[in-house]
Write a protein that binds this DNA or RNA. Structure first.
Lengths: 188, 188
DNA sequence: AATTTGGTGTGATCTATATCACACTAGGCG
DNA sequence: CGCCTAGTGTGATATAGATCACACCAAATT
């Protein structure tokens, strides 16, 4: 059975055993308990993170103190504060664990090193990022032209697995709806 | 004086004259008048587009027939229906010109060809896309936790040039606010 | 067993924003 | 010239969704 990261990368391009071992040697492992922070507002964000096991949320806190969820991540997803990470700036979001979690960490330096040494992995990252870009555009469209109810229904369809593992309160915070409103849109 | 595309790409990595000519040979030029469509809902989207001159908007129409603006693009920006383009599916958005416009077109095939032949350009595209990803995340945060007024102010700060060239009605459609509301948030 | 913590539902109200309706202006074009 | 079209402002009203307040439950924690 292959390594989860290998399966993940090989959806885009194949690697030899030696290549994959080399790639993997640029990652470090981190284990976190429920409620622990992976990224904390104000700190540096040295790494991008590939989730091996667990579930996390990335949240942004508005001036009036309300938490909105930018992103979830479970097995096989990547998560970080990318703005801070790529610009080597202080984090403006928090990322914490909703379950016991294990991630692989890739530093900015190691990513650039791998990308310059191995064309194929830069290709992987480009394709991944393009797909991510498209997904974000879809989310923006959904925020712009769908009602709370429509967004909730889209979420349930798009992320059935995630739905099982998340309290509704958090889905609400992801959709930009109050938990009370979400709770009320059963039949309507 | 360098070609605008060259200047654009060399913000990320330098190219020799021969390399750049080779890159450029993979693009075609297209000129459009005001109100002409670059991408039309339901059609294929063979190309990504780099704007040499002019101004365009990408719009999505919701079920109830309202137009929301996903993206603007002026000189030096890229624009397409990326979901449709990358998946070779039918467009779900319209892209049309707000001014007389000239774009460079890059087909999916030519992009992949260039990327596989020239590691440096794949690097450029990866970095560009990462930056785009971060920008979209910022926009999502702004949609999730800012009021209409705050979003408008952020827009004015972030895109002063664009603001000059756009009617407020369109800025409203980009921000997800009705034009009447936008018109009312002067002092408040 | 008792208490805290996290999640949920639901009524009563409030408010930001949408909607509808109309008037005004400036510029392009027959 | 006079007629469209596009863009804008603003009043009156409607409404989706936020907020506040409370009750309830289940699973941890002590």
């Amino acid at each position: 059975m292959s390594h989860p990261l290998r399966i993940h990368l090989e959806k885009i391009s194949p690697f030899s055993d030696a290549e994959f071992d080399y790639i993997l040697s640029h990652f470090t492992t981190k284990k976190l308990k429920k409620h622990q922070f992976l990224v904390q507002e104000g700190n540096a964000v040295p790494n991008d993170h590939f989730v091996l096991k667990g579930l996390l949320k990335a949240t942004h806190t508005s001036q009036d103190g309300k938490e909105h969820i930018l992103q979830f991540a479970m097995e096989d997803w990547w998560i970080s504060d990318y703005q801070a990470h790529f610009n080597q700036a202080a984090a403006t979001i928090n990322i914490d664990c909703l379950e016991e979690t294990e991630v692989l960490c890739l530093s900015l330096h190691n990513r650039e090193k791998l990308c310059s040494e191995l064309h194929k992995i830069e290709h992987c990252f480009r394709v991944k990022t393009s797909n991510g870009y498209v997904a974000l555009q879809r989310r923006i469209i959904s925020l712009l032209d769908s009602s709370a109810k429509e967004r909730y229904e889209q979420f349930l369809l798009q992320y059935p697995t995630l739905t099982q593992r998340l309290p509704k309160t958090m889905i609400a915070a992801y959709l930009g709806v109050s938990r009370e409103t979400l709770s009320r849109l059963h039949g309507a």
